[in-house]
Structure formats: structure tokens, C-alpha cells
């Protein structure tokens, strides 16, 4: 009887650990692999400027990340949130403009067994120095 109970507990624990691992792997894959194209396609071109600056548009980044995370993460958890912080690349000060050169996404999710998943992602526009 005891052996049966121990076996059952082991089975439940195994399933739980499997479930947690599945959640962590799934969420991690989605978060870490956040498509670069989300950020590339959030750039509004300043067509009137002689030498336009290439910057992320806050509104577009927020909209696209919201769509992406809501759709992709719903398979794994509903219990997540994230903060988006736009900053200036030169001094990492907060960017208060509509268009900014860098963004930090702090991602949090509470999983099985109250496991806290946290990731911080940074994306920056990089000038390759070709003079454009």
C-alpha cells in the first residue's frame, strides 16, 4: 500500500515537473525568440529628413509585442506580465520621445508551484557605420 502511495506521489511529481518544464521551455522559447522583425517593423521612416534617424516607435512596439505575447503565450500561461522601458542608447536614460533607439522588455510569469519566470530583453538600433 505504501509502495503504491509512493509510486502515485512519484507519478504526480513527475507529471508536475514535466508540466513545469514544458511551461518554462515553451515560455522561454517564445520570450527569448521574440522576433527581431517586430522591432524592425516598428520603425517609422522620417522621409523628409536629409539624414533620417532610425528609431523604434513606442506605440508600434507596444502594439506588436502585446499581440505577439498574448497570442503565443496563451498556450502556456495566462499569468504573465511585462514592462516596456524605452531608453536612449548613449546614456541609457529614459526616452520620453515617441521614437527611441533602444527598448528593454522585462518579462515576468508565475508558473506551476508558484515558480517565478523572469527575463529581461534588450533591443537596440545599431548603426553599422556606412555613413548613411
Amino acid at each position: 500500500m505504501l509502495i503504491l502511495l509512493i509510486g502515485l506521489a512519484f507519478l504526480i511529481t513527475s507529471f508536475s515537473v514535466y508540466g513545469l518544464t514544458y511551461q518554462i521551455n515553451g515560455i522561454n522559447r517564445i520570450v527569448v525568440s521574440t522576433p527581431i522583425s517586430i522591432f524592425e517593423s516598428s520603425i517609422l521612416h522620417n522621409v523628409e529628413d536629409e539624414e533620417p534617424e532610425i528609431l523604434f516607435t513606442q506605440k508600434l512596439v507596444r502594439e506588436k509585442l502585446e499581440n505577439y505575447y498574448t497570442f503565443e503565450l496563451s498556450k502556456f500561461t495566462e499569468n504573465f506580465h511585462y514592462e516596456i522601458y524605452f531608453y536612449n542608447q548613449e546614456n541609457e536614460s529614459m526616452c520620453v520621445m515617441n521614437e527611441c533607439g533602444a527598448v528593454e522588455v522585462s518579462f515576468h510569469a508565475t508558473l506551476l508551484f508558484n515558480y517565478k519566470y523572469e527575463r529581461t530583453l534588450n533591443y537596440e538600433v545599431f548603426d553599422n557605420g556606412y555613413g548613411s
Binding site: E40, I54, N122, Y123, V125, F126
Partner: peptide, 19 residues
């Protein structure tokens, strides 16, 4: 080159890192 795209073939690229 592209204006924005891969870092090898573009004037500008988006670089990301996770921590």
C-alpha cells in the same frame, strides 16, 4: 545594402540580447 536588416548587409540593424 538594405537600410534596415541583417547587420552584414544593412546600414542599420536591430541587435537584441536576453538576460
Amino acid at each position: 545594402r538594405d537600410l534596415i536588416g541583417s547587420c552584414n548587409e544593412s546600414d542599420y540593424c536591430v541587435k537584441g540580447k536576453a538576460s
